[in-house]
Design a protein around this nucleic acid. Structure first.
Lengths: 140, 140
DNA sequence: CATTTCGATAAGCATGCGCCTATCATCTAC
DNA sequence: GTAGATGATAGGCGCATGCTTATCGAAATG
């Protein structure tokens, strides 16, 4: 009935190319993929535990420790013990971190625009809308 | 200006979920991801060298050897020395391979339809069309 | 208070992959 | 022919990742 290729077969190369471009765009800003993902997550609001952050960004909780160390050292995030429960660390982005994240995001989206520019305005809007919808459908 | 999340951030989780679902769908058919990708590539037409196949499926040429071994052993592909250049191996899918691939693809797409079913017909069509377009834009 | 639970951290192990090298057979060019 | 290029294959190295365990400080529970 359906005459089409598999979704994964179409989207996987696309995502690989997007990620490669993203890594290239991130390099001048001196932050890694994971660092950027963490900054983005914290830009949406602070997080009470590192486990929650790891869960939110889809990473192993033992994996992001080094990333947090480097971000903190660079002054892009703060990581203070929760006064209410001193086992937990309150994670928040700093103003410098926010600026860094916004600048990096601008470069990333600039690159993505080159791809999207080939689409008709209608297709472009529909694609972004659907991508957002589907991403939310599988995530939570 | 552009008020949206990064494309990669939206599509990556989606692709991960699609691939996980694909692996699950493939299991009853007794073939791996790479085997399915190889079968799909050969279903579109035979290939003269393994290096060309590896290139086509985006894999390392030393990585697919084991996959080809198993596919050949299972009778799903043929791998014969090219009479014209006996260094090269002519790769082709067998009828059994084609049946296996078609059956697996049907299961995979059935799962994908569950996701796409939440979309309006217009959005669904636009999304598939754009995904195909973008995949072709980054691939070659 | 003593036991148990929980969060962060470090360390170890297995996996899968990209990359690089070596080997062997074959083909091509001179 | 002889030298160099090409294809398949095997093996090893390094990296990133997921998963598991151990430790330690701090809470919570009884």
């Amino acid at each position: 009935m359906t005459e089409r290729r598999d979704l994964a077969a179409m989207l996987h190369p696309l995502v690989k190319a997007l990620i490669a471009a993203e890594i290239r765009a991130l390099e001048p800003h001196g932050i890694s993929m994971w660092a950027y993902v963490v900054l983005s997550a914290l830009d949406d609001g602070p997080v009470r535990t590192q486990a929650a952050l790891a869960e939110a960004v889809g990473a192993d909780k033992t994996r992001i420790i080094g990333t947090l160390d480097r971000l903190q050292e660079a002054g892009l995030i703060t990581r203070e013990p929760d006064p209410g429960d001193r086992r937990a660390r309150l994670l928040a982005i700093t103003d410098a971190g926010r600026r860094r994240r916004r600048a990096a995001q601008a470069d990333i989206q600039e690159g993505e625009e080159l791809l999207l520019a080939t689409l008709s305005p209608g297709d472009r809007a529909a694609f972004l809308r659907v991508a957002e919808t589907l991403a939310n459908n599988v995530g939570p």
